[in-house]
Nucleic acid binder design. Structure first.
Lengths: 150, 150
DNA sequence: TAGCACTCTTTGAAATTTCAACAATGTCCC
DNA sequence: GGGACATTGTTGAAATTTCAAAGAGTGCTA
């Protein structure tokens, strides 16, 4: 349980620190950055709102707010989804891609400096394995609980 | 870097899930719970606002808000600090201690269920070691940067 | 093809968090 | 003793996040 508390505290400090660095050298928030990363990797550089919310672990309304803020700043655009007219997509703009390209090197350096450099190879491997597994399990739990048929 | 993203996502899911469990079975938020834990362990069951903010990784104004909310609910009381009249302390109340005692078993079970049970002993040891070290380093970095004299 | 149950997303109001002052002490140094 | 300056914590306004409810669409069933 001491380990558990160390994990919470260190994670909190780490996220805070990375966000400060990112903000200082690119003006983007952590959330902005992650939206840009996910969109840049998506086919057509676009994603449904629901899909994006899910991957960011954001509530739907939080994502609506986040995306409208990014739209005001020109980082993304919105289009309604042709297949399902209830739906809506966020699309990466040229300005958004540029902002990501400019922010990425500094951010990666910051992650390396504050986290990765502190770890040896085994530790990196263990963390990667553990969190990948944990993420899968938590996603699965959530899916199971929203589908009471099993 | 894939590991990094897995870490962010899984942590986010984990915190969300634990907070939901905690709220559902005790009515406390994650922040409430941590305040209660820290106070219950402190000598005299009281802590200076600054000390508490630091350990929670909260901004000072966020802590002011958090504590006044808990005070309204009777979980803590406030006293001004005798040694330093600028300062102020949060003190655990009997009701606060009771709330913690009632919430703790369920919360610990939830941590075990969602996190610890998924890990083997080596993994637990590695995570504990890594995050303890990381926390120390991030605290040290911050102290260093607020003391430019080196 | 009307009705109904469900899904995807947004909205408005309330709660929380941040951010930039500010008030009140404390500390240092002359 | 008196300033200048640093520290501790709060406040008010703005930004963000949550929460409950609503709007709009889809799809199944009869």
């Amino acid at each position: 349980m001491a380990g558990w508390r160390a994990y919470i505290e260190a994670s909190q400090r780490l996220f805070t620190r990375l966000e400060d660095d990112l903000r200082a050298d690119s003006g983007l928030s952590f959330a902005d950055y992650h939206v840009l990363v996910l969109l840049s990797e998506a086919p057509g550089q676009r994603l449904r709102m629901g899909e994006l919310a899910d991957r960011l672990v954001f509530s739907p309304s939080r994502l609506t707010y986040q995306i409208s803020s990014m739209r005001r700043r020109g980082l993304v655009a919105r289009e309604s989804c042709p297949q399902d007219r209830r739906g809506s997509e966020a699309v990466l703009t040229a300005a958004g891609l540029l902002a990501l390209r400019e922010a990425a090197p500094g951010h990666l350096a910051s992650v390396r400096r504050h986290l990765v450099d502190d770890l040896d190879d085994d530790e990196v491997a263990t963390l990667t394995r553990v969190f990948a597994r944990l993420g899968r399990r938590l996603r699965a739990d959530r899916d199971a609980s929203s589908t009471p048929s099993e």
